[in-house]
């Protein structure tokens, strides 16, 4: 009984005591009312700590935290970091004696244009091909194996067409992109609504980013980078619905 330690007593308070120790601890406490009241005080403390800011749990979180959780500010920061990098190059440019005005112009423009990137291009491709009635895709879903093999070969990596609940695959096509070929898969539900998944190479990224959301007119786009590919899912859906579909895509590509 004397081998009951403070660790045992703390574990008793927290419900983390191994069952085999329980009898020893209870016997120890039975003979020591002071210790019993000390542990009772710790239990009261534990309950009070949970009560203390319980209201915070029920509050809807502030928008800035939701944005941070969704990685939106992170995206903006990454963009700022790229600007910072560009600024560094400008300083370097000045140091080697180029004219400041020209450098500023030359370095800023591509950075500024690159920002919306994949989301914008995916939305444009979506708007271009989804209204097509006769030729929405180059290769139909009836030749899916051929389609996937062809797009994988052209993109230089294993491309897959995920299955989307309620939106069967229509087919896909190859598109020209800024830095090489791009795959577009098209899906359509019973009421004729179409979604497109835009897949392109993201050379050298290797990283995974958060889901990000952009809107181009009526078209919503969720886009992200996973390993060496950039993905953008576009559709005229509510943000939440589109998010649910994007999550399906992500899960299937990361089994």
């Amino acid at each position: 009984m004397d081998d009951v330690t403070e660790t045992d007593l703390q574990a008793y308070v927290d419900g983390q005591l191994p069952e085999a120790r329980r009898a020893d601890v209870e016997a120890y406490l039975a003979a020591r009312p002071e210790e019993t009241s000390r542990l009772a005080a710790y239990r009261t403390q534990r309950d009070a700590l949970r009560e203390l800011h319980a209201d915070v749990l029920a509050e809807p979180p502030p928008a800035r935290l939701v944005h941070a959780a969704e990685g939106i500010r992170g995206a903006m920061r990454a963009r700022l970091a790229r600007w910072g990098l560009a600024a560094g190059w400008i300083v370097l440019g000045l140091a080697v004696g180029a004219t400041a005005g020209w450098q500023l112009h030359a370095w800023n423009s591509p950075v500024a244009r690159a920002a919306p990137g994949i989301a914008r291009q995916a939305a444009v491709a979506h708007a271009t091909y989804t209204p097509e009635v006769r030729h929405p895709v180059e290769v139909g879903a009836d030749q899916e194996a051929h389609l996937v093999a062809w797009l994988s070969k052209r993109l230089g990596g294993s491309v897959r067409a995920p299955r989307l609940a309620g939106f069967p695959l229509v087919g896909g096509r190859l598109l020209p992109g800024e830095s090489g070929p791009v795959a577009q898969f098209m899906y359509q539900n019973e009421s004729g609504r179409r979604l497109t998944l835009y897949v392109r190479n993201e050379p050298g990224s290797g990283a995974e980013t958060a889901f990000r959301y952009a809107r181009e007119g009526k078209i919503g786009v969720f886009y992200w980078i996973d390993r060496s590919f950039g993905y953008a899912l576009s559709g005229e859906l509510e943000r939440e619905e589109l998010y649910a579909v994007a999550s399906q895509v992500y899960r299937q590509l990361n089994p």
Binding site: V56, P61, L65, V66, A69, E70, F211, A246, S247, Y250
Partner: peptide, 14 residues
């Protein structure tokens, strides 16, 4: 996707 898990954890973190 983890963004949803992050959002769900906000109240606990707060």
């Amino acid at each position: 996707m983890h963004a949803a898990e992050f959002v769900a954890l906000i109240p606990r973190l707060r």
